[in-house]
């Protein structure tokens, strides 16, 4: 049994993944952790769908969609940055990563603005089940965005220092940032557009 389990652990060529296998372990783990949150959300939603949808209508769909586009664009830019770094154009890569960070900050600002708007209109964390999940899930996601900004800051440092400029760091940061994007795609679907 143990041998069969160990045989499933990837090794050798199987580890030739973009960036870093450790980062992929992290990213896949995060995807499964978030999947658990999605499951719990749907369990509660099924029992009180009308209430959930009613509360959901208080969210601004346009702002949510706009924020999604912003995050998607930031993902696009960091993917371009990875390519630029691969070609050796570290200056261009740095510029693209800076724009990624900028869009990440914009995303966070808009999210906080949304929160402020909802709180001011009386929809707070303990208001009802939908908003409990909304604030908790977008909050955890926002924490991941914050971590991502830290990681991208590290990448900027890497790209700026000729002695470093390690490709796997740039790629691993990209992998993480894309994970944040994928999670948001699902969150956007669950919280904003699923009616």
């Amino acid at each position: 049994m143990r041998r069969r389990l160990l045989a499933m652990v990837p090794s050798g060529e199987d580890l030739d993944v973009p960036g870093s296998i450790n980062m992929w372990l992290f990213v896949v783990g995060e995807l499964f952790i978030f999947a658990f949150y999605f499951f719990v959300f749907m369990m509660y939603r099924t029992h009180a769908t009308a209430d959930f949808v009613g509360s959901q209508r208080h969210l601004n769909l346009a702002v949510g969609a706009g924020n999604t586009v912003i995050l998607l664009t930031s993902s696009y830019l960091v993917a371009l940055a990875v390519q630029a770094a691969r070609e050796g154009s570290h200056d261009r890569a740095r510029r693209l990563v800076r724009w990624t960070v900028a869009l990440g900050v914009v995303f966070m600002t808009i999210k906080l603005g949304e929160w402020a708007y909802e709180v001011r209109h009386g929809y707070t964390f303990p208001s009802d089940d939908f908003f409990m999940f909304y604030f908790a899930l977008t909050g955890v996601h926002l924490f991941h965005v914050l971590m991502g900004l830290g990681i991208l800051g590290l990448v900027l440092h890497e790209l700026r220092t000729p002695a470093l400029q390690r490709q796997f760091v740039v790629e691993a940061a990209g992998t993480y940032w894309h994970m944040v994007d994928v999670v948001w795609i699902v969150l956007f679907a669950l919280l904003y557009v699923l009616r």
Binding site: N22, E30, M132, V140, H144
Partner: peptide, 29 residues
């Protein structure tokens, strides 16, 4: 090993999601 750092970071996330226990008396939080 580096992957242990990431397993540790997962603990940060779960620790943050333990904060709402001060607010909710029922439900997942």
């Amino acid at each position: 090993p580096k992957w242990m750092a990431y397993v540790t970071i997962w603990q940060i996330v779960t620790e943050l999601l333990a904060a709402p226990v001060f607010i909710f008396r029922t439900g997942p939080f």
